[in-house]
Amino acid sequence: MHISEGVLSPAILIGGAVVTMAGVAIGLKGVDNKNIPKMGILSAAFFVASLVHVPAGPASVHLILNGLLGLILGWKAFPAILVALGLQALLFQFGGITTLGVNTMNMALPAVICYYLFGWSTKSSIKQSVFITAAFASGFCAVLVSSILVGFSLYLTGEAFLPAAKLIVAAHLPVMIIEGIVTATCILFLKKVRPELLEEINV
């Protein structure tokens, strides 16, 4: 879901950059030297997830995991995703300098939204069925909102992008379901194996 350089209009690029800068500033406020290595792991996991292709019918999709990142990191997802996307631009030329702001916003804003909507579910006292549903919803919604944001960025650049934007959202429907399942299973796994992971970063 990276938008390439040169496609979007200047207004969208600036808007995205401003939102991202604000988000990164908020995210970095709560960061101290102790949790940077852990954020680095999640950031790197987000990067590697985009290289993990899972089958979806005849095609294959790659994992996104921004919902998972949002649940664990909250606002810190902004700097984590910014760094991961920056490295992807440098190493693979996915996206670039001027689109870094918009692309980060499109991925990180849904993560933060999911944190506020479903973040409560990672607390230890919550019943397992509720927890799994919330985690699924988080993975699902993060991709849904991301694809809508990508569609909107294109649409606001020019109305002619509307059909392409609609197709992008529709094409991500299977991705949303897969992300939901993966996020729910992964969070459940983490809760069983290493519950402190879900709690300690965001104190």
């Binding site: 102790k34 290595p37 852990k38 680095g40 792991i41 999640l42 790197a44 996991a45 590697v48 997830a49 993990v52 899972v54 089958p55 979806a56 019918g57 994992l63 995991l65 998972l68 897969i178 399942i181 993966v182 996020t183 729910a184 299973t185 992964c186 796994f189 983490l190 194996v193 290493r194 992971l197």
Partner: peptide, 30 residues
């Protein structure tokens, strides 16, 4: 890998395992 629940769950556990090992390593490094 196939298009089924088992595949997705296996991948989710894979990601979970990556995170757990990664966190342990980051702790040691820190």
């Amino acid at each position: 890998p196939k298009t089924d629940l088992h595949t997705y769950k296996s991948y989710a556990h894979l990601v979970g395992m990556l995170l757990v090992r990664g966190f342990d390593r980051s702790q040691r490094v820190h």
